[in-house]
């Protein structure tokens, strides 16, 4: 078992090193001079001494291996560079945006998984009934709607018409709320984007759970459990659910990795200050260091989520990870 984990860690370490190297090489392989980018239009009027000074300041006159070492050093110490458009350190920007994305996307993932699993299982248990048909139709309908459209509809009904929820943002910045007041303020801002996110992502889990549960119910061991005299309830939860959840767990782990990328569209529609919107802003304003940093963060979290999945999977599925005990 230990060998299994050590092997996995080594694998992921290699992936991270490769990824960092690629991330380092990409901008250096791109055509054009970094000076234009660093100094802007003024570069044409600068003397070669002034140019050198700028290059020195950013360590660009060092040899490539030296640059690589300082790049790695910066990443390890959490220094992602400087955003020239936002005029701020990228690490600070990410630190500010990440909690909001974790809140929105994390809650969205958890809630949509729970709802999807519950209804997916219910649908499979009542296969062919009107409950099954209605659930299936409803979830298919939901998944067919574009997220920005749902978002806009929700805003126009609940914010504009009924005035129940705020239109944009993650909290009312100007009011300086504290304690429980601030908590409820954040919650009120969260309702609409979270609902939109759950509505568009729930069908995925629902379909996987329904299909997986149908497969499991057709397995011989379910009939065996029935022949053993096991009660239906126990069969559903102890025998069928455990097995049917395996594919859902896989998808959950994978989505966990992409979670930090945020729900770009939804964050944009609701002007929610998360990483997804940051990425959108950086792309629109061609803020290359920021683009690079956000992509790096997403890659990191995908790798970490995969590692997590690899570590946890043997506990969920005994078939994975060899023999735990003899």
């Amino acid at each position: 078992m230990l060998k299994f984990y050590v092997g996995k860690f080594l694998q992921y370490f290699l992936v991270i090193v490769l990824m960092l190297t690629l991330n380092f090489l990409l901008p250096r392989l791109m055509p054009g001079n970094p000076l234009v980018f660093l100094a802007g239009e003024d570069v044409g009027f600068m003397t070669s001494e002034e140019k050198n000074e700028i290059l020195d300041k950013h360590g660009l006159n060092d040899s490539i291996p030296q640059q690589y070492i300082s790049y790695i050093k910066n990443i390890v110490t959490g220094d992602f560079g400087y955003s020239y458009q936002q005029k701020r350190s990228i690490a600070d920007l990410l630190k500010e945006r990440m909690p909001w994305t974790l809140l929105l996307a994390g809650l969205g993932l958890v809630i949509s998984t729970i709802i999807g699993v519950m209804f997916g299982a219910l649908s499979a248990w009542r296969r062919g009934s009107s409950t099954d048909a209605n659930l299936l139709t409803m979830f298919m309908f939901l998944s067919a709607m574009p997220s920005f459209w749902i978002g806009m509809i929700l805003v126009s009904i609940f914010s504009a018409q009924l005035g129940l929820f705020p239109v944009f943002g993650a909290e009312s910045g100007w009011s300086n709320l504290t304690g429980m007041d601030r908590f409820f303020d954040i919650l009120r801002h969260l309702v609409l984007p979270l609902t939109t996110l759950v509505l568009i992502s729930v069908t995925n889990t629902f379909m996987i759970m329904r299909y997986s549960m149908l497969n499991v119910l057709g397995e011989d061991y379910i009939m065996m459990a029935k022949a053993k005299g096991v009660r239906d309830r126990v069969i559903k939860y102890k025998h069928a659910m455990r097995n049917a959840l395996l594919p859902v767990a896989t998808v959950f782990m994978l989505s966990l990795g992409f979670m930090l990328g945020g729900a770009t569209v939804i964050e944009t529609v609701f002007a929610y200050p998360g990483v997804g919107r940051l990425m959108f802003e950086s792309v629109v304003s061609r803020d290359y260091p920021l683009i690079q940093a956000t992509f790096l963060i997403i890659t990191f979290s995908v790798v970490i989520a995969n590692l997590l999945a690899d570590i946890l999977y043997p506990f969920i599925d005994p078939k994975v990870g060899g023999q735990r005990e003899k």
């Binding site: 011989d220 061991y221 009939m223 459990a225 022949a227 455990r242 097995n243």
Partner: peptide, 14 residues
């Protein structure tokens, strides 16, 4: 009791 057709699938894998 039953000894099932294909015992391979008749035992719950988890």
């Amino acid at each position: 009791s039953v000894i099932p057709q294909s015992a391979m699938n008749a035992l719950n894998p988890v």
